[in-house]
């Protein structure tokens, strides 16, 4: 009986020997987490599905570059987040192109228009506002909020996935939550939440 770690190592070794079907085990293990992270980063269910599948496909294409088999997820996470942020930047860039033509800032340019309230379970006004505010955070702040709140990762796990120290995680979380709090306070007309 192989442990989960052994099975992962075996699956990666098979992929590295040119058997892509072995990757299915890896996909089944991480697909829900990958989809959920992508949804948190881009805020839209269709895009999250497409981007998470594309990230797995790219991981498979580059599987030879993965040196430490036990570190698959932190390595994969870099691919996934780069894809998600590139996708968002392209959308913002397309929207600001419209700005030059029309002279006003469309909702898409704020980075929140894709934070579909339907992505939030049992959405109500407060939850939708929190979700929208998360969408307006900087990339590095948004990702720590997503990993902490929606993935329930410990600080050590977040640090491992972001290739940074635990101190950096705490610092980013502090600034992320502070920004989030300011935005939510502003939405409530300056009243503290």
């Amino acid at each position: 009986m192989h442990s989960v770690c052994d099975q992962q190592t075996l699956a990666i070794q098979r992929c590295q020997r040119g058997r892509p079907e072995a990757f299915e085990w890896i996909v089944n293990r991480y697909m829900k987490q990958a989809y959920s992270i992508a949804l948190g980063l881009v805020g839209n269910r269709d895009d999250a599905l497409e981007l998470s599948q594309e990230a797995f496909y790219r991981a498979l294409r580059n599987i030879d570059k993965l040196k430490s088999h036990s570190k698959f997820f932190p390595w994969f996470y870099q691919i996934l987040k780069n894809l998600c942020f590139t996708h968002l930047r392209k959308r913002v860039s397309r929207s600001t192109g419209n700005l030059e033509e029309t002279g006003y800032l469309p909702a898409e340019a704020t980075g929140t228009a894709w934070f579909d309230p339907e992505a939030v379970a049992e959405a109500n006004e407060t939850k939708s506002k929190v979700w929208e505010a998360i969408g307006r955070l900087k990339e590095k702040h948004r990702e720590v909020i997503i990993l902490r709140h929606f993935q329930n990762m410990s600080y050590d796990e977040i640090a491992e996935n972001l290739f940074c120290s635990k101190g950096t995680v705490m610092s980013r979380l502090y600034h992320a939550r502070k920004k989030l709090k300011v935005m939510l306070d502003d939405q409530k007309g300056g009243r503290h939440i």
Binding site: P20, E21, F23, E24, V27, N28, M31, K32, Y35, S36, L39, G40, R45, L49, Q53, E54, F56, Y57, L60, E118, A119, V120, A121, E122, T126, K127, V130, W131, I145, H149, F150, R177, L180, K181, L184, I193
Partner: peptide, 28 residues
């Protein structure tokens, strides 16, 4: 703030998407 953010949960997608998930990657 934490109390509020803890209430926000993401929608679980339908099971069907997990059944077709691998084929979406293999097709690529």
């Amino acid at each position: 703030l934490k109390q509020i953010t803890d209430q926000v949960a993401l929608v679980e997608p339908e099971d069907k998407i997990w059944q077709d998930y691998w084929s979406g990657i293999y097709n690529r």
